[in-house]
């Protein structure tokens, strides 16, 4: 006799079976290490960062004094903060734009059946995976004012008469940083766009061809609308990552000349370990996070929508 009965129970409370509870316990057990590590190295530090920003802390001794919101008041009235924010925006917008435009272009090229396609893809992908340290060393050597190949090539092409100081002058420094950033990170856009391109059904292009659309019209009417969704996600993600970029700028220019390429992450580092103001640095970090929060929420919403 096999019976399945589900008579409505008297109590409204949904009672879990013992098996269900056992599964839930096992689930919690499996996630426990993650939760522990998260709490210890992410949640706790995040909260203490906010707490620290209310103190004045001298880095070498780590001795602190409660100052309340003084750090924030001071920060918002400092012109260096606003300059750093402006630099941060210029850097983010500049390098992001180049990454997107160049990334889409290269993805379209690699989507075609070009010679040695997989080799081409590897070559394009490589800058993204190498260490920023390596990228910076190589570019510093290329940028070298006396023996750098870049100056040599531009001079022999007659573009310039004198060697250029790529990293020590303005606006050269900002342009160089933006270009190197674009070079290093555009492969991310290439791969992401390429993956999406490969999933656009061929029928769409054939239909457009039958309707008499040329190559350009096909790009704007078929390709771009299909890419729109993935592009929004890519832009958000890269905007967040570019905004918080530290290594590349710090290693290339150190924020210089003076503070012309100093972005907020560099400012945080400088306050904490050059000016030894750990509390003030925390305040900078918190403000920076607050600015990023906007993008983060938009991105999280977007990915939620998709998974829902």
């Amino acid at each position: 006799m096999t019976t399945l009965s589900q008579a409505s129970s008297v109590s409204m409370r949904a009672e879990q079976t013992r098996l269900e509870r056992r599964y839930a316990h096992l689930g919690l057990l499996l996630i426990a290490p993650t939760v522990l590590i998260f709490s210890a190295v992410i949640v706790y530090p995040l909260i203490s960062a906010i707490y620290m920003s209310l103190f004045s802390i001298f880095t070498p001794t780590l001795e602190g004094k409660w100052v309340g919101v003084d750090n924030y008041v001071q920060l918002l009235s400092a012109s260096e903060f606003w300059w750093s924010l402006l630099n941060n925006l210029i850097w983010t917008v500049g390098t992001l734009t180049l990454q997107i435009v160049f990334g889409i272009g290269m993805a379209l090229v690699l989507h075609q059946n070009i010679w040695f396609r997989s080799l081409a893809r590897s070559l394009i992908l490589f800058p993204y995976f190498i260490s920023t340290v390596v990228a910076v060393l190589v570019w510093k050597w290329l940028f070298n004012d006396l023996y750098g190949i870049l100056n040599h090539l531009m001079m022999s092409a007659g573009l310039i008469d004198m060697p250029i100081d790529y990293l020590g002058d303005m606006p050269n420094a900002m342009i160089s940083v933006i270009l190197v950033g674009a070079w290093k990170y555009f492969p991310f856009v290439v791969i992401a766009v390429l993956a999406r391109l490969q999933s656009i059904p061929d029928q769409l292009y054939e239909a457009a061809k039958i309707d008499g659309a040329g190559a350009v019209a096909r790009f704007f009417d078929v390709t771009l609308p299909q890419l729109r969704e993935v592009l929004v996600v890519i832009v958000m993600l890269r905007a967040i990552w570019d905004f918080k970029e530290f290594d590349l700028i710090f290693l290339l220019t150190g924020g210089g000349p003076i503070i012309s390429t100093q972005t907020l992450p560099l400012m945080v580092y400088k306050e904490a370990f050059a000016l030894n103001q750990l509390g003030m640095a925390s305040a900078y970090a918190v403000v920076m996070m607050a600015i990023m929060l906007f993008f983060m929420i938009v991105y999280i919403r977007k990915t939620r929508e998709k998974s829902a």
Binding site: P45, L46, S48, A272, L278, S282, A285, M288, M296, I300
Partner: peptide, 18 residues
Amino acid sequence: LFTYLLPSVVLILPLYLM
């Protein structure tokens, strides 16, 4: 997802202290 996007510079100061 949130921490995946979190900047390192925010965490580094308290982590250093810790």
